[in-house]
Write a protein that binds this DNA or RNA. Structure first.
Lengths: 301, 301
DNA sequence: GATCTTCAGGTAATTCTACTACAAATTTTG
DNA sequence: CAAAATTTGTAGTAGAATTACCTGAAGATC
């Protein structure tokens, strides 16, 4: 094999975070290329402003080797490397580099929490599989009845969903405790849809309810943060991959992410429904607004 | 003034978001430079992979003009422009979020929902008053007991908060229905804190409970989306100004925003607590993790 | 163990890209 | 309408990224 066509590292991931690709692929690189990788990892942000020749000097290799390195990690050249690295650093800045620490004042804290949530949403967006979403939408729009199963933190998401979907004229529920979940699941039948929400995908009650729902003939949709046992019990598995939060004080992003996915699902379902249904939806929203104004007692906020 | 030292646009903002800088600075640019700006805004991501000459051709200007444009918007050259643009693109896409329409396919819809949520968070961040947040944090960290009042959609937020705060060793509650709210409020006493959550700030039950809590001597914190009657009953009023959602299909961003604010509050309170409390918090988190692993039955999702 | 093969990595040449100096064109101003 | 000022294009250049080619080392084969 010629040295100019090295086996490119497997780029299974979306090429969003080059830094991770480099770190992971480090052992598979050739000796000189690894030196370049180390030089990049040592001070990634500076690479954005230096030239190829300078990076070669820092790594103590020749210029072509730097290019070979770039190709090996899945870039199209040094130019492309810089661009990808810049994008990757945009995330890195908010994840590891800017971990929340005890010395932060409030304004720093506010900034970091927002940053983290923002980059998390971007992360989720890049990793969301549209096909599965489409399947979920198709199932939901045809549903005679929808039940959302979520426990604890995911219960919050389930509750949110349960408040959003009934607007399409489909009865919805979100039993929050284990027994109610089981009972509800036992009442489902073909044509109904059960949406199981669990970040870990390991919550036993939710899994039980989901299995039961499936046995009863309902379509089951799972929303989890990782490939998990729950998805085995589901006809459709929606993966909502969030940013790892290794630090103690990182905000909890899984609920936020799941809620955005719920947003997408409900909006998509609403769009997929036919004109008449859409009108009903609009009417209902108007009625809600009116009632709130007069009653000041509504449940829309 | 020489043509090669044009008045650089005021870079008041962090230069994180180049796209916004361009959009905002568009009118202040020279005619030809504006053509470049428009070409960039028309298809920002493609600029990352094209050459200066190509961008000049697209914009129908000469190459130096492209460079002048880059300098004008605060970059150090075309190279730097690409890097900054890449970073900017990693986050919020275009700031002009187009409305969701019936003709959108799923992928467009997903993009728009994310975009809307992202720019909303940016919006909220820019408008959040740190001083009030600080006051809220101060009140919460001293609280003997915290009750969250939220109805309907805001009930979701209250529930979320109620799940997050007890980790600091303070008893928390989130009565979701009107009667429970009133009853809970009636039991409060000086040293306790009541957090009223309502996007409109007009929900009568929440207002009643809040007034009652205040009469009982509790400190009252209000979280609303707009200057509203509820805030009159509160010692501390946190305004969470969200993007207006005039369209029919815009996702509901108020909960998301409020939840991020809750994130900030809980994290800040946790930081403000002394070392020993922080240790307790860490321990509890560890125990939670362990229990979840063995039981698969925890309430952390 | 010598020779052949293969592959990593460097040298030097090449191509192109970003940028600069200067001149033309346009607009503004008295 | 002319002069000044400012914007924009032309042509040239330094240097950046890339390619072609060559050398030396490590392994394989007889």
């Amino acid at each position: 094999m010629s040295s100019d066509t090295p086996h490119q590292l497997a780029t299974t991931e979306v090429d969003d975070n080059l830094l991770e690709v480099i770190t992971r692929g480090l052992p598979d690189l050739r000796k000189s290329e690894r030196r370049v990788a180390e030089a990049v990892l040592a001070d990634p942000s500076s690479v954005l402003s230096i030239t190829l020749a300078e990076l070669a000097r820092r790594s103590d290799v020749s210029e072509p080797t730097v290019i070979r390195f770039a190709l090996a990690i899945g870039c199209e050249g040094f130019r492309d490397l810089r661009v990808k690295l810049a994008r990757s650093l945009a995330f890195a800045r908010t994840t590891s580099h800017s971990a929340i620490s005890k010395t932060d004042d409030l304004s720093a804290l506010v900034g970091k929490v927002f940053d983290f949530n923002l980059s998390n949403l971007n992360w989720v967006r890049a990793r969301l599989d549209q096909q599965t979403i489409q399947q979920a939408v198709d199932a939901l729009r045809k549903a005679d009845r929808i039940e959302f199963f979520g426990y604890g933190a995911s219960g919050v998401v389930a509750l949110d969903a349960q408040q959003k979907f009934p607007l399409f004229g489909v009865p919805c529920g979100a039993p929050l405790d284990g027994h109610q979940m089981i009972m509800t699941a036992a009442m489902l039948q073909p044509g109904d849809v059960a949406v199981a929400i669990s970040n870990t995908g390991e919550t036993e009650q939710v899994r039980q309810a989901t299995r039961l729902a499936r046995e009863r003939g309902a379509t089951t949709i799972g929303i989890t943060g990782t490939q998990s046992p729950l998805l085995e019990d589901c006809d459709i598995g929606v993966l909502v991959e969030t940013l790892e939060n290794t630090d103690l004080y990182t905000p909890t992003v899984s609920r936020l992410s799941a809620m955005v996915v719920i947003d997408i699902l409900s909006t998509a379902v609403s769009l997929a429904r036919d004109e008449s249904d859409q009108q009903r939806f609009a009417q209902m929203k108007a009625v809600l607004a009116k009632t709130r104004a007069s009653n000041r007692d509504m449940d829309d906020d």
